[in-house]
């Protein structure tokens, strides 16, 4: 026997699972009025007035597969239900909960006592139908589609349609961006912290010894260097940047220097380079020698050059002239 859901439009109460006989009894007792709405249980068939459903008025006949729906006769809305073209789901749910009759429990027919699954399914259907079609909002634009859904095996079709439309949006998996945000913040922090520390690339140089009195060294320089050559790889650079290693000229470029220094170290076992550059040697040539020594891991010693003797005389007049010019200028002006 087919079960029916009845919506009491006067009380806004939904009662499910009534049999046709129960409805007939309700009609007889005045519990159910002709203006109340009914539809087959568990379907999304549009609600129809009981007065328009002849099979309910004559309970002996089985209900037709598809209840007729007459739009013109069902437009009467229950007062508190907001009439919208497209009902907002949450609102409908709340109203549906309010409308759910705790008192109507005794009228619910044992379809509810099946299993948990059935219960859930039923409930889901019920909710869906209540949100879109369950309330008399059926007169909205949903109406046009409705009969197509109800064609043929309505149970299966309806369920499939409903479940698809319901869980479709919910199942759209969003990329979880939380991890990405974490990493990005780490990077931001890293840049923040490192931006404040600026590193300068430098070469550490040994402390030039202050002991050699320039004059004395200048006197005995040749001999001293000869003695030193036994302990150090002697690298001499003159003012023009010409390099001599152990008194032999070497091209002043990195690969040749390292090659020569490496040979010198391997053949003689000396591990320290003594850099003896002239005073006027450009700084970059000395750095080149440091770099070459660093490249093959030699220790570095620096011989303090004699103070300018050749160049200073050349410079001194210029210096004097500059000073004189400086002194002369105010006098001239």
């Amino acid at each position: 026997m087919a079960a029916w859901d009845v919506f009491h439009s006067d009380r806004l109460e939904l009662v499910r699972g009534l049999s046709a006989d129960q409805i007939a009894a309700g009609l007889a007792s005045g519990e159910i009025r002709n203006d109340d709405l009914a539809r087959p249980s568990g379907t999304n068939t549009p609600w129809a007035r009981i007065a328009d459903l002849p099979e309910l008025l004559q309970p002996a006949e089985p209900p037709p597969a598809e209840p007729l729906f007459d739009e013109t006769k069902t437009v009467e809305m229950p007062a508190p239900v907001p009439v919208r073209d497209w009902p907002v789901e949450e609102d409908e749910d709340e109203e549906d909960e309010e409308a759910e009759p705790p008192a109507g429990a005794e009228r619910i027919v044992p379809t509810w006592e099946l299993t948990e699954d059935d219960l859930g399914q039923e409930d889901r259907d019920q909710q869906r139908s209540s949100s879109r079609v369950g309330l008399p909002v059926v007169a909205s634009r949903d109406h046009g589609d409705r009969p197509e859904f109800d064609e043929g095996d309505e149970e299966e079709d309806d369920e499939a349609t409903v479940s698809l439309s319901r869980s479709g949006p919910a199942r759209v998996e969003e990329l979880d961006l939380a991890a990405m945000v974490d990493v990005a913040f780490q990077l931001v922090l890293f840049f923040l912290v490192t931006a404040t520390t600026i590193l300068y690339k430098t070469l550490e140089i040994p402390k030039p010894s202050t002991e050699p009195p320039p004059g004395a060294v200048a006197q005995g320089r040749q001999r001293t260097l000869d003695e030193l050559q036994e302990d150090f790889i002697l690298v001499e650079i003159d003012a023009e940047g010409n390099v001599r290693i152990d008194r032999e000229p070497v091209a002043a470029e990195m690969s040749a220097l390292t090659e020569r220094l490496r040979t010198a170290r391997e053949t003689t076992g000396r591990t320290t380079m003594l850099l003896s550059a002239e005073f006027a040697t450009p700084h970059r040539n000395a750095v080149l020698a440091y770099d070459a020594a660093n490249d093959i891991g030699l220790a570095i010693a620096i011989a303090k050059p004699a103070p300018p003797q050749g160049p200073p005389p050349a410079f001194a007049p210029g210096q004097g002239a500059a000073k004189q010019a400086m002194a002369a200028e105010p006098a001239a002006s």
Binding site: I198, L199, Y200, L203, D291, N294
Partner: peptide
């Protein structure tokens, strides 16, 4: 120079 140490 090829080699060097960074100093803050």
């Amino acid at each position: 120079a090829r080699h060097g140490v960074g100093v803050e």
